[in-house]
Design a protein around this nucleic acid. Structure first.
Lengths: 331, 331
DNA sequence: TTGTATGCGTTATCAA
DNA sequence: TTGATAACGCATACAA
């Protein structure tokens, strides 16, 4: 099923085209290579006249800096590795957003982002590493890395950026109570990971007492959540706190199928706020992870380590925000 | 809301740690630099004894090749730029999968993948470019690039890999007819893009005649699709062909709310098969884009250009596949 | 089979 | 303010 049609074909002379180097620019501008280098890196040290001459030459020749040469000379590559250890199938939409934000922010700072999917390969020519989806079993490998490093999610022995998961769930509870829901149910994850535990802890927080019998822990699957919720006898004015938007969506389906009025009789609030919350028959009310702020924090912490040439291990915690949708009552 | 706790802090001596070079290995193994280089690049030219000695030295010292040095010497960087021009919010889950496949495949081939989000920045130190989400307005910029280039989706003057959208929709029609649905409705996109037109063309294909009055074109939004379908009088045994899974999901919501039996009375089939199709109360039957094959085709076509040092413009078309779900009747 | 000399493009150092 | 020289780490060409 392949269609080939060679309309235009030209060779890349000598491997690549456009091999204008700093020497070519220097010749064209009748100055030394160093002067050209200074125009690029320390323009304040160059006289206005020469600066203009060199700039003109650069434009005329279409000179583009060769990063390999610079990397070799400066021992800096202006490249950051983003290592994505999560299973994409499980975290899909979140991944796309995070990687995009990080790439954009790094780009603005003059860096390039490489994408890696494993810690096993050697890293070459990078100035630092960002990691998402690391587990405890990755600790040894992470600690063996000799690069500036920031992880997403708490990690021993490494700088990290994380969301305050417990605070997020407390926010969710408060919102449901404020909206007049009287009985709270928790649809949680049966995962043995730190964030899952923290979200459960948030639900168990004593400020708003809850009934231990109303806590369920299942896999992060909307179909399973739907089945579970369909077995429950939901009293009027029930508020469902789901540990993820995906679970919340399952609860919503259950209500829809069983003719429960959402948000009048049952309120549903999810967690994450990334794509999935808007994929239901109703837009979910959710606790939104501040992905852009997460990306910014990860990058700025990493660049600080690079600049200071010191590896530090701060644990930066960001508070998620309530994002109103159509599955809870509110003004 | 920041918590800092510096447990361990050490400096990166001289910018980075671990600056073992080929010279250090050579010294340790009592050979010349060239012999070390050969062990790495042409092991067959080296005697077994020396090979082992050098390998031992490499392991002992923890030597990692410096890519900048190699790039400078060989004029190859073993780095590919993947330029993602799509709006992430619109194509979210698809993007995550594609970029992941491409990164993995490139990695296996010994390449590193950089992620870019614009064609505006200069590209340095790359061997080739992959592009997704280009529009006609990007043609000029793409043609100005002097690197080996492959785009996803048809593009003038560049090699491209695309899905046979018309064939996919024809597959969908055939499946619905085979399943016994008698009246076909098309829920299409109002976009002015090539793929949207191709999918419509597939529905209009004369092999299975359709009624022009049963064609609707809207934005790619499940809420809008739901509203639209709710206004339709769906005769029993109606088959809905949706141009995207997101539109199909909207149709499914409409049926659910209006108590139409899916798949018994109404059959629904989507297009894309990436994440969204499994996010509904029922798993969608869909025409799945072969993302992994797309990624493989893009990479292999690009590497071929790089190897041959020739820019060619084949148009590679891949056929999508029917993926059965719970929204159509079948055995 | 192994070693020597040279150059890739850039920047830092030092001298003018 | 500008320029000459050396160095970064590696691989190619050539010599031994």
């Amino acid at each position: 099923m392949l269609q080939y049609s060679n309309e235009k074909a030209y060779t890349f002379k000598g491997g690549r085209v456009n091999m204008v180097s700093i020497s070519d620019v220097a010749k064209q501008a009748h100055v030394s290579k160093m002067t050209v280098s200074r125009v690029l890196n320390h323009p304040e040290q160059v006289s206005k006249e020469i600066f203009d001459t060199v700039q003109t030459a650069i434009n005329e020749l279409g000179y583009v800096q060769n990063r390999a040469g610079r990397a070799l000379a400066t021992n800096k590559s202006y490249t950051i590795a983003f290592v994505m250890l999560d299973e994409v199938a499980a975290v899909d939409p979140y991944f796309g957003q995070l990687v995009t934000y990080i790439a954009d922010i790094l780009n603005q700072a003059g860096y390039t982002m490489e994408l890696h999917r494993s810690l096993d390969n050697d890293f070459h020519a990078i100035d630092g590493i960002l990691v998402s989806g690391a587990r405890e079993s990755d600790d040894a490998q992470l600690n063996a890395l000799t690069y500036p490093l920031v992880t997403y999610g708490e990690q021993a022995g490494a700088a990290s950026v994380d969301v305050d998961n417990a605070a997020g769930i407390k926010l969710a509870k408060q919102h449901l109570v404020d909206a007049g829901y009287e009985q709270l149910i928790y649809l949680g994850l049966d995962l043995d990971e730190q964030f899952a535990q923290a979200r459960l802890d948030g639900f168990l927080d004593s400020e708003i007492p809850v009934d231990q019998n109303n806590i369920y822990r299942i896999a992060n699957d909307d179909h399973i959540a739907r089945s579970l919720v369909q077995t429950l006898q939901l009293a009027p004015k029930t508020g469902i706190v789901a540990a993820t938007d995906r679970l919340a969506l399952g609860a919503l389906y259950a209500c829809l199928i069983d003719q429960q009025a959402v948000p009048q009789d049952v309120g549903i609030i999810g967690f994450d706020g990334i794509f999935i919350h808007q994929m239901g028959p109703l837009t979910l009310t959710t606790i939104a992870q501040p992905l852009e702020r997460i990306a910014e924090a990860m990058v700025s912490q990493l660049l600080e380590q690079i600049e200071q040439q010191v590896r530090t291990n701060p644990h930066i915690v960001l508070t998620p925000e309530l994002q109103l949708g159509d599955t809870t009552l509110h003004n």
